[in-house]
Design a protein around this nucleic acid. Structure first.
Lengths: 176, 176
DNA sequence: TGTACATCAGTGAACGCGCGTTCACTGATGTAC
DNA sequence: TGTACATCAGTGAACGCGCGTTCACTGATGTAC
């Protein structure tokens, strides 16, 4: 509650990731600037570089956080395929910045080991419910496409219905 | 064949759109710069502005070209839903730059009338084969998701099979 | 056939801007003794 | 309890860069008479 701003932030790394998410929500991952992130967090413009090395490092941290959130959401949804699909779509609409960054590999340090671990864990959950490979590709395509089109506003849920219902009705169109 | 470069290009507008497509293929639509496009076309850096007004104008021209290409591809595919889906996925992998720009509305002049006409024409064809609305959303999500994931390299066709076969096997997973 | 003039296409210099990154630095914290 | 020192976090000035856009301009073409 003190007015005086301490020299040491305490948890600047986390704060910078949160500022980056806010910036991406507004302007997209391609337009992210380290200086803007620093401004949002109220620190000097060189601070993000100090913590993440470079811009791709910061975006990689956002992607890792995203995969962990997705992993947790899929874990909570249980093993049923339809519920996994709904959770995937809900994750994309609830965390659009994370979702966007996760699928922009050209902006990331794709060789980051933490990233690989987080991605593989979430990816594994996604495959559990699918059945044969062809069906897995179709299922992933279906929910990924719906998530993408919703995020872009190309599709909007009908008034009175939510994302969850829409996702459920769409996953039902897949053969059992 | 003359070495001398004429002052007037003849079809610079078209050449600039093609240069833009090449640049987007390499670096993505977000990283497009007018000066780079001009360099590729061998003209002064102010020439693109002369033709398109601003950067969004150039990207809008790319998007319009993309919707017209998609429209033609869908028309050639005929009315069958599965074939429409295959054509959609093939369009995305054959013309990744166009496809990317078409789905980045924040980079475009979305109120451009030519854009609206081209988009609606292609969109209309896509809906013809679908059946009821819920199935149309599912079908679009399915092919759009597959196209997106293929373009990002998140999914790759198995060795020996092509995009067409993969698209067909995926669309088959949708209920009749 | 010739000449004047309007129109359009493309140029190149100049501007101001925000950016990523580097670097020597200072403030704060923790640990050894 | 005190003091010295190492370590880490964050600063702020400086750099060079590529960018979009503006603007007065020049080269080329077409049309009127």
């Amino acid at each position: 509650m003190s007015e005086a701003k301490p020299y040491h932030h305490g948890d600047l790394r986390r704060a910078l990731v949160e500022s980056a998410v806010a910036a991406i929500d507004e302007h997209g991952p391609g337009a992210l600037s380290l200086r803007d992130v620093a401004r949002r967090a109220g620190v000097s413009h060189a601070a993000p570089t100090h913590h993440f090395g470079d811009k791709a490092g910061l975006l990689t941290a956002v992607a890792v956080a995203g995969y962990r959130l997705l992993d947790a959401a899929l874990a909570a949804a249980g093993p049923d395929f339809a519920e996994l699909g709904v959770a995937y779509v809900r994750f994309a609409t609830d965390h659009p910045a994370h979702f966007a960054v996760m699928f922009r590999p050209e902006l990331l340090h794709t060789d980051d080991p933490e990233l690989a671990v987080a991605r593989d864990s979430a990816g594994g959950r996604l495959h559990t419910g699918a059945g044969d490979p062809s069906r897995a590709v179709a299922a992933w395509s279906l929910v990924h496409g719906l998530a993408t089109l919703l995020r872009q506003g190309a599709i909007t849920p009908e008034p009175g219905t939510g994302v969850t219902e829409l996702a459920r009705s769409v996953t039902r169109q897949l053969k059992r």
